[in-house]
Amino acid sequence: MSVPLIYTAAGIFLFLLGTYGLVAYAHLLRKILAANIMGSGVFMAFIAVAGRTPGAPDPVPHAMVLTGIVVTVAFTSVALALAVRIARTSSRVHLSGRDEEQ
């Protein structure tokens, strides 16, 4: 049971967990959290697969995941600003037309 296999499987399940969260909830903040969890899952699977090659760890996936983490912060901040704006203008935090609490 190699270490990278465990983390790849964990990454895959994190991604799917995030997908469920994105789909199941209407509240915008939850969707943003779910998107972050999906991103972390993809990064974990990517680095775990890269870690399977013997010898020194491969720097290119590390650089790309580092870039990915920074971009995740960027999109999270924009999404949160949009969510705050929606909450301010429509005093609701979900986009669905139905009014009951989602």
Partner: peptide, 10 residues
């Protein structure tokens, strides 16, 4: 987890 995956920068 990144520490365990030998990814110090990440």
């Amino acid at each position: 987890a990144w520490v365990r995956l030998e990814a110090p920068d990440v």
